[in-house]
Design a protein around this nucleic acid. Structure first.
Lengths: 121, 121
DNA sequence: GCAGGACATTCGAATATTGTTATGTCGTGA
DNA sequence: TCACGACATAACAATATTCGAATGTCCTGC
């Protein structure tokens, strides 16, 4: 049902697309579609340097795609609820598509191999 | 129904998003969601210089979002059918969202005010 | 063939984005 | 309070993107 899409803020939509127009950030969103993760998870699962992981997450946060919370030493990231109905629908489609992909599944497996999804180390 | 989304080529998806991560190009897609148009239409409706209109259309074409055909002196652009099921779904959502927006409606009205949707001049 | 219109491409300067190295901040545990 | 780990930010060079001006290509009408 597309009735939820009642508005479209062009500026917000372009920011949304721009943030997702990068393979690394798409892979981050793919991992997050399986649940909450902290920065070190992205480093190991995607082979990113620590500053790079942090910055890509910052880009996604600026675009309103992810949000974070601190828990002790760690900062956990999760997909942010979308205020804009259009972005909400797009992100939903994206997340559902991420349930089936091979390459991205390798990322998830690399993540699970390194450590359980809850504990950091 | 999202059953059509059986694959997700991450590289193609990021190219797709990257091309749409720009306000001008989103407005172009908005106009195209109402039908086929030639370059001069974008110039007048969106206030773009000729080289800029051409270039933005080129970006969208490289990403496989639009395709073009020549008719006499004019080159007509239209939305391209999406091969990738994921991009197809995303573009569909985008087009359906463009049916309701105010700002973008101004673009369309500016387009129609300048000239009929079929004749160039 | 020639002139002119419609569009594409090239070039160059300004600006933005990228990844790495170095450094800063914050919370934890001793 | 001090050292350390997790993360963020700054600083930098390399690269990419942006737009306008100039130029090139293709088609049409004469």
């Amino acid at each position: 049902m597309s009735a939820a899409i009642s508005t479209l803020d062009v500026r917000q939509a372009s920011r949304f697309f721009k943030a997702l127009g990068d393979e690394t950030r798409l892979r981050i969103v793919a991992l997050l579609s399986h649940g909450e993760l902290c920065v070190c998870h992205f480093e190991s699962a995607l082979g990113l340097s620590q500053p790079n992981a942090s910055r890509q997450l910052g880009v996604l946060r600026s675009a309103g795609i992810v949000e974070s919370r601190r828990e002790g030493s760690w900062v956990y990231y999760r997909l942010a609820p979308q205020l804009d109905g259009f972005c909400k629908q797009q992100l939903k489609t994206l997340v559902s598509a991420f349930g089936r992909r091979e390459v991205l599944k390798q990322d998830v497996e690399r993540l699970l191999a390194a450590r359980g999804p809850d504990s950091c180390r």
